[in-house]
Computed example of a mutant assay.
Amino acid sequence: MPEAVIVARLRAAGCVFAEDEARLILTTASTPQEREAMVAARVSGLPLEHVLGWAEFCGLRIQVDPQVFVPRRRTEFLVSQAVALARSGAVVVDLCCGTGALGAALAAQVEGVELYAADVDAAAVRCARRNLPGVGVFEGDLFEALPGGLRGRVEVLLANVPYVPSGEVALLPAEARLHEAAVALDGGGDGLEVLRRVCAGAPGWLAPGGVLLFETSERQVPGAVAAVEAAGLVARVAVSEEFFATVVIATMGLDRS
């Protein structure tokens, strides 16, 4: 199938970046049959990353399985903030890890980190284990999934929590709403329910001076900062116009007494 034909089919299906998508499909597919299947799947509305089986994130090729949350480019800003704070050999946890993209990206940029990851969704855990070979990836509800030996040792806690308010999930683009697990999108009534649980539990797991980093929306910043401060952590907000991203950095005090 010529590239021009693929581009035309994708454009007719509403794919804005049809040329780029066609090139990715052509370079990923290993046979004409696989290429046709990929084009048909994309035309049907399947997210490109699920069609390809991977997503580019921080320069890495992250494997993405069906129904697993696709890492967003804006979240690269969260990773950059974490990289700036992580020391070589730091104990790092990727909570609500999805594909494990955040942990993988940080580990690729900071030497010798001791990385752990966890997610409540079994499909995400299976996917993350492939993206994080040799890393402990655990299945369970937030901190309950982690080994107890990490208590008080975590220096960098990445938590890409769901933060879409329940009433707004139905307004999400179909690619997310229909093809990603609801548990990775729905943040409860105001979108901050999971975040509050993470903030409340974080002090028991962070090392002195440790940091919790999470993404949120601009309008949710006051509520997110309030959750951080209610947990006894100190909040700082970082904003990127380039990535259209807002990240809250919550720091544990040095004195745990």
Rank of each mutant, 00 (worst) to 15 (best):
P2G: 13
V7D: 03
R9E: 13
L10P: 11
A12F: 06
V16E: 15
A22V: 07
L26F: 11
S30F: 05
Q33T: 07
Q33S: 07
E34A: 15
M38R: 13
P47H: 02
W54H: 14
G59P: 06
G59A: 02
V70L: 04
R73L: 02
L78N: 09
V83M: 05
R87P: 02
V91Y: 02
C96V: 11
A101Q: 03
A101L: 03
L106A: 06
A107C: 10
A107T: 01
A108V: 11
V110L: 02
E111N: 08
G112N: 14
E114H: 07
E114D: 06
E114W: 00
L115K: 11
L115C: 04
A122I: 04
L132Y: 09
V137Y: 04
D141V: 10
F143P: 06
E144D: 12
G152I: 00
E155Y: 07
V156T: 11
P162K: 06
V164H: 03
G167Q: 07
A170N: 02
L178S: 03
A182H: 06
V183F: 00
D186W: 01
L192Y: 12
R197N: 12
A202W: 10
P203T: 02
P203H: 08
G204S: 08
W205R: 13
A207S: 14
P208F: 12
G209K: 13
L213H: 15
L213E: 09
T216W: 00
S217C: 04
E218H: 07
P222Q: 07
V225M: 10
V234C: 05
V234L: 07
A235K: 06
R236T: 15
V247D: 01
V247R: 09
T251G: 10
M252C: 08
M252E: 12
M252T: 00
R256K: 11
S257E: 14
S257I: 06
